[in-house]
Amino acid sequence: MAQHDIKFALNHMVCPRWTPQQLIEIAAEMGLGAVELRNDLGENSILDLATARAAGQRARELGIEVLSINALYPFNIWNAEGAAKAQGLAQMVDAAGGCGLVLCPLVDADHTASDEEKRAGLEQALTELDVILGRYDLQGFVEPLGFPISSLRTKAEAVSAVEALGLERRFGLVHDTFHHQGAGETAFFAERTGLVHISGMEDPELVFEDMLDPHRLLVGERDRLDNVGQLRRLLKDGYEGYVSFEPFAEEVHALEDPVAALRASMDFVNKRLA
């Protein structure tokens, strides 16, 4: 895929101090086509229909696509509370004119379910979410989290469950470069991937299985996650969707000029892929 075919997007985690409207406006100023909204950023979260509608209106005015609200957590532990939360989030994605809902699994060292129980819980959640998301014609973006204590670490596990249920049209994967490396996964599922998240990790002393969200930077020269290699493989295998920046590090969030830093990271990735 040629350099100019990379479609970058902004996850609101690039700068949580921006309002949803500012995120959308900055994406437009940068010449980007899409954003991901979030429900975990305090006062700048999407937590009600009015806020979702206002963000969606601004996105439509500027021609920006709302890819998702991030996220339903823990999506794979299904109960009445989770069902109500899923319904509320689906309504907010719809109100924002969004494409889908990011689905993140439980991360808990005290979760003692067997592999069989985890699989059953995953299939139950996918089955129930198919109905909820279907009411609004939304996609479910399943994001395996590569932490050792995650209840769903690999994309292969997620694909297996989705295919067993015949729900390929409803659910796609989030390929997160950080979690792909953290899980030690080697399989790529470009044909099943609906969204890509990128972030970098530079600490030379850190082993991949010990990586945590605060280590997640923008992608640059010292990146140890092979973001460029992962993207090259996904694009070679036919991925044509958005590549969304998702840094969690406080040092990124505190940048005086996050737009300049984002442009520099985009330039770095594009040059390495060219």
Rank of each mutant, 00 (worst) to 15 (best):
T193M: 13
S199L: 02
Q230K: 14
E205Y: 09
Q230G: 07
K236I: 04
D213F: 03
F189A: 09
S199I: 02
T193F: 06
V219D: 09
V207R: 07
R232I: 10
L231I: 10
V207I: 12
L195C: 05
T186C: 06
G200Q: 04
G220T: 08
T186F: 03
D210H: 15
R192H: 03
L195Y: 10
N227A: 08
D223W: 05
R232H: 12
L225F: 14
P204R: 03
T186K: 13
M201W: 07
D213C: 09
M201F: 01
A190R: 01
R233E: 10
R233C: 02
G220H: 11
H197F: 12
M211H: 00
A187D: 10
F188I: 01
T186H: 13
P214L: 10
D210P: 06
D213Y: 13
L231S: 02
D210N: 15
K236P: 01
G200I: 02
G220Q: 10
L218Y: 01
K236S: 13
E205M: 05
G200C: 04
V196Y: 00
R222G: 06
R222F: 11
D210T: 13
D213K: 09
E205Q: 12
L217C: 04
K236L: 12
L217A: 02
F188C: 00
G220E: 07
V219I: 15
H215P: 00
D210A: 15
P204N: 03
P204K: 05
D213S: 13
R224H: 10
R232L: 11
G200L: 04
F188G: 00
L234D: 04
L206T: 06
L195G: 01
D203M: 14
L225I: 12
R192E: 02
H215W: 05
R192C: 10
T186D: 09
H215E: 13
L234I: 06
Q230R: 09
